[in-house]
Simulated assay, not measured.
Amino acid sequence: MGRRYFSLPDVGEGLTEAEVLEWLVAPGDRVAVNQPVVEVETAKSAVELPCPFAGVVSALLVEQGSVVAVGTPLIAVDEEGDGDGEPSDDAPMLVGHGSRERPPARRRRRKPPGDAPAPR
């Protein structure tokens, strides 16, 4: 069995911390990939965070009501096989993981014919 740690991801919009509102699991619970395990609140919203791996919860590392920085380990999960605590390359992408190489393309607005301003 390997122990893996799930840390508070960057939940977006440059936020650097979040408050742990409620744990949705307890030590000894079995979790599946993408199962919500904790609800956190940032300055902008409250969200449920899914676990990126499956296994048995071995420890909740942060108490409810605590404000923690992005990157702080939240939960420890024991999984079968060889785990080194780091997400594997085939782990599903979660909110805030990875980076966008370029901004999304915007479509140009087309003016319908006949909406052109009248010449002066």
Rank of each mutant, 00 (worst) to 15 (best):
M1E: 14
M1T: 13
M1N: 09
R3L: 14
R4Q: 11
F6I: 03
S7P: 08
S7R: 13
L8M: 13
P9C: 03
P9T: 07
D10M: 07
D10L: 11
D10V: 05
D10E: 12
V11C: 08
G12L: 01
G12C: 05
E13R: 10
E13L: 03
L15H: 12
T16K: 13
E17W: 05
V20F: 00
V20D: 00
E22W: 00
E22N: 09
W23Y: 01
V25Y: 00
V25H: 00
R30I: 02
R30N: 07
V33W: 09
N34I: 04
N34Q: 15
Q35V: 01
P36Y: 04
V38D: 04
V38L: 02
E39S: 04
V40Q: 06
E41H: 02
T42G: 04
T42V: 02
A43K: 09
K44E: 12
S45I: 09
S45V: 10
E48A: 14
L49A: 02
P50C: 06
P50M: 07
P50V: 02
C51H: 04
F53L: 13
F53E: 10
A54K: 06
A54L: 14
S58C: 01
S58N: 07
A59Y: 01
L61R: 07
L61Q: 06
V62K: 01
V68H: 03
V68E: 03
P73W: 14
P73V: 05
P73A: 11
L74V: 08
D78Y: 04
E80K: 11
E80G: 10
G83E: 03
D84P: 01
P87C: 13
S88A: 14
S88H: 15
A91N: 12
A91G: 08
A91Y: 01
P92Y: 13
L94C: 05
L94P: 00
V95M: 12
V95P: 06
G96L: 05
G98T: 05
R100G: 03
R100Y: 02
E101G: 07
R102K: 10
P103M: 04
P103S: 06
P104I: 00
P104M: 03
A105V: 02
R108L: 11
K111T: 06
P112V: 05
P113K: 15
G114W: 07
P117I: 01
P117W: 12
R120Q: 13
